[in-house]
Write a protein that binds this DNA or RNA. Sequence first.
DNA 1: TTGTAGGCGTTATCAA
DNA 2: TTGATAACGCCTACAA
Lengths: 331, 331
Amino acid sequence: MIGIEEIAKQAGVSRSTVSRVINNDPNVSERTRQRVLEVVSSNNYVPNRAARKLAGGRTGVIGLVIPIGVSRLFVEPFFPILVQSVTDRCNRLNHSVMLWLGEPERERRSITQILSNDLLDGVIVSSFQDRDPIVAALHQSQIPFVLIGRYPDSLPVNFVDIDNEECTRRAVNYLIHTGHKRIATITGVAGTLVSRVRLQAYRDTLARAGFQVDENLIAEGGFIEEGGYAAMRKLAAHQPDAVFAANDAMAVGAIRCLSELGLRVPEDVAVVGFDDAPFAASYKPALTTVAQPIAELGRHAVNMLMQLIQRPHTQPIMEVLPSELVIRESA
Amino acid sequence: MIGIEEIAKQAGVSRSTVSRVINNDPNVSERTRQRVLEVVSSNNYVPNRAARKLAGGRTGVIGLVIPIGVSRLFVEPFFPILVQSVTDRCNRLNHSVMLWLGEPERERRSITQILSNDLLDGVIVSSFQDRDPIVAALHQSQIPFVLIGRYPDSLPVNFVDIDNEECTRRAVNYLIHTGHKRIATITGVAGTLVSRVRLQAYRDTLARAGFQVDENLIAEGGFIEEGGYAAMRKLAAHQPDAVFAANDAMAVGAIRCLSELGLRVPEDVAVVGFDDAPFAASYKPALTTVAQPIAELGRHAVNMLMQLIQRPHTQPIMEVLPSELVIRESA
DNA sequence: TTGTAGGCGTTATCAA
DNA sequence: TTGATAACGCCTACAA
């Protein structure tokens, strides 16, 4: 493997100068820069990240942590979309992604150990739980990190989130305005803020519209297709004429259940999902969806993290993506 | 961050000794080892990977490369399952995983650059194409790597694969033995060996059973659900009474199409998939599946890679997992 | 604008 | 069985 020393020799300069060129130090004459750059590219030289890290520089590696179990990992489209968008954005910025998935609770401690000592310039965490030890550890460490989703305790942490309240409000209002009277909801995972927020917004919106909230019309679906199916089974007994599912996977499960019960969607029961997952867009029968592009979240998280890495803020950044409502009605 | 120096001081030994303990060097007295180990764990000490790499050691990081596009990434369960099984196995072995996904052809060169210089002890590549430049580059480099799936050219590379011929044969024979006469097939992605092999095995099995192979009963599905749906639409015109789909995603697509056409599965048209994907197991209506646990592939690939890293072979290892046939028939 | 030199935390080689 | 000590490749003052 060819090193900085060799490049320096070929370009007729010192290692320092090569280093400056590589790191975009302005204090290099244009002529020298060009010469060095030429040698660099003709040799396909890439600086050694380990050495760079050791010398106090960046590695160009960021960590992506998604501590959810296999059952969700395999069925929720959220996962591949997020991973893809994050890696894609990083690769475009000449960075690499190190991935940690769904470790059980007891192993989380060792993860944080690794994270803090590792080759990472920064970390992105998604799908965490309330008071997640990973988040706590990260917060104590010096490593820059960004959460995808708001964090429960009022910890001053950097996060990027969607406007859950607004999205939910629009979804429920859509159902109200289209004349539905018994609007049910399928919630996500108890013990996550995102689920609570969407549920609360559901309640508030109904209440504000003068509806009585019927507890029989609320069921938990765990964010997965199977859970949406099971929840719909329970809800069906109480004859809703519409369902707001807290994500698309559960919406699809609900539709599967409804069609088994011989109910038409949306004529008999209207269904609205959440996420604007690609698979939902092509799903038949009709699925209406609140748009919240997951990929956008990933991109923004990476961008924010890059900012933090370059100049660590004291002020935490909290970014809430503007909400959109895209109702898809299929033929 | 606490380093080896500090541990040495607290344990009253030299850095060298601590290093020996960490790396399981037998030349340490039991008493010393215990003392060091104690200090290590009480300080939550973890060796710095960058430094370790620089000094000639391992980083404990392996790369996972899956060069497929977004369209497959989002809809094929293959992806999350493989990623999960690989990361899980690695984490259990105290290793980390660096991920590269679906870069377009033109960017592959830079990937290999990164790979070869990076912090990686080894690399796993899946879903490559025939004569993939990534594989070629890896083969020229010194870095240990394992392919998931056999490689076309007779390059002597390490791989772990499933027994595609045998699996396909069993699937098709199952359809023959259950009395089907017009057995169609939906193939994967042209330009991948795995697709060609499954198609060829389909032809051979039919021929050996005395069937005439009807080219109208062969359609390409690209390994995705939508593709399976579209392929089934074409095939339906030629009235097959059974379909062998080269993976479960396409099988699900085919079933969706059939049910839209008012055909019952498996009474009117039997469907057999491939992969034993979890989602397929719970899919209704009836889907019969050739079992080939993807997670097993991931686990084996990691194990093989670890072997290679410890003692690089000259002889390439080629492991073919024994095939299984699990036909699931749902109620 | 450029070069020199020290150090980052570890492993490996040699002596002791 | 242990302890010095020289790399490993790079970055960053500091000096020129």
